[in-house]
Write a protein that binds this DNA or RNA. Structure first.
Lengths: 134, 134
DNA sequence: TATGGGACCTGTAGTTGGTACAGGTTCAAG
DNA sequence: CTTGAACCTGTACCAACTACAGGTCCCATA
């Protein structure tokens, strides 16, 4: 399988696959005489793993760690569980932050019922020093 | 006021203030003979506006637009309201995505009650092609 | 008035996670 | 044997900053 089909099967951009190789989270695959990359099932699996982890919001650094655990196959289920829980916490905090943001934005807008007067409560709110978030 | 005090009063990094000047969303301030930047109340206000908008998740491009509306002071309340509502929608979508993420992560972890066996349901889940998000 | 050191200056490079070319080569179908 | 799609490398770019290095300025204190 060349890079094109791999790209199609994983939904991962060709440039991105080459980027993953460059930064070392995908292995350098064998090549044809002419220099084209040839991938096999194992590459497909690994790239799927990476994409899936990224979809779930793991950073490439976290993915790297997960892959090290997998590669070493001396990982403990516990290590992986811990990483995942930590990450779940991050996501949870992010949700909370965004909810605050949303509330503030909606509040600002709800102050606004005038049509086209150049005296806008949203703008006023943005000029407030008081941090509503945090 | 020099850049240090401005930084302290806004909570905005000195390097960031200079960056904002470079990209043109903060105006070039007057200087002392020796070349130190001197800021006044108006700069403090503007920077506060920028930081507050950024805190609320507006991109610098959106901030630029908001500032254009403010500067021109021919903006209509409606334009600002629209921008803010659009942005609130973005935030809303982001929250939904993160919630899905969180659910998948928690589900993965809940499969995991073994101690240190190198056969981990989380890893298995990450190897699944099936996209649970999307 | 000299001086020490903290605050400031410019310019460049690095970060994350990719994307977007340009300009050239290879592969495979017809 | 030709043609054009797919591939190659290398570099530059995106947001939104941050982090130096290496030099200058300012002002409080002795």
């Amino acid at each position: 399988m060349t890079i094109g089909p791999l790209s199609k099967q994983t939904g991962c951009n060709i440039e991105t696959i080459r980027y993953y190789e460059r930064i070392g989270i995908m292995p350098k695959p064998p090549r044809t005489e002419g220099g084209h990359r040839i991938y096999r099932e194992e590459h497909l699996k690994r790239l799927t793993f990476i994409r899936r982890s990224r979809e779930l919001g793991f950073t490439l650094d976290q993915v790297r760690n997960l892959l090290m655990l997998v590669d070493g196959d001396d990982f403990t289920c516990d290590e992986v569980k811990t990483m995942t829980l930590d990450h779940a916490d991050d996501v949870h905090r992010k949700i909370a932050d965004l909810k605050k943001m949303e509330r503030v934005l909606k509040d600002m807008v709800s102050q606004c019922n005038r049509g086209d007067v150049p005296d806008c409560p949203v703008i006023d709110a943005l000029f407030q020093t008081r941090a509503c978030l945090s």
